[in-house]
């Protein structure tokens, strides 16, 4: 299978790899997927309580190159966005940006899920 240049770029130079303190109040963590399915994404965001702006994002992913690229791209996209703007990111945007083939669409779905899970974790902590 040939990978798009953008997938290769994110795979070779993944953006925002890392881990934040999952117990911190300003941090939301999303852990989606399952090892037996071959994909697990952990996406973390740090949100400014005042402005609701995502000031930082980190990820770690177990999965194929497209899964790594989807989550790497997701961290780039959510940074600087408000929570509501981040929730508007659709998996189809990721598919388009990375030129994912049909068999890799689930990777983009997982990345969208990870964003939602991280935001929902933050909301739960701060409700």
């Amino acid at each position: 299978m040939a990978y798009s240049d953008k997938v290769l770029d994110h795979y070779t130079n993944p953006r925002n790899v890392g881990t934040m303190d999952k117990n911190a109040n300003e941090v939301g963590t999303g852990l989606v997927g399952a090892p037996e399915c071959g994909d697990v994404m952990k996406l973390q965001i740090r949100i400014n309580a005042e402005t609701k702006v995502i000031e930082d994002a980190k990820f770690k992913t177990f999965g194929c190159g497209s899964a790594i690229a989807s989550s790497s791209l997701a961290t780039e996209w959510v940074k600087g966005k408000t929570v509501d703007e981040a929730l508007a990111i659709k998996n189809t945007d990721i598919v388009k940006e990375l030129s994912l083939p049909p068999v890799k669409i689930h990777c983009s779905v997982l990345a969208e899920d990870a964003i939602r899970a991280a935001i929902s974790d933050w909301k739960k902590k701060n409700s």
Binding site: P14, L31, G33, A34, P35, K60, F62
Partner: peptide
């Protein structure tokens, strides 16, 4: 880059984690 390796190193038993469905 692997969240699983990180969890393993933290001593998490991955077989006991309740994973979100695909």
């Amino acid at each position: 880059l692997s969240p699983l390796y990180e969890m393993h190193k933290e001593g998490v038993d991955l077989s006991k984690v309740k994973w979100a469905a695909e």
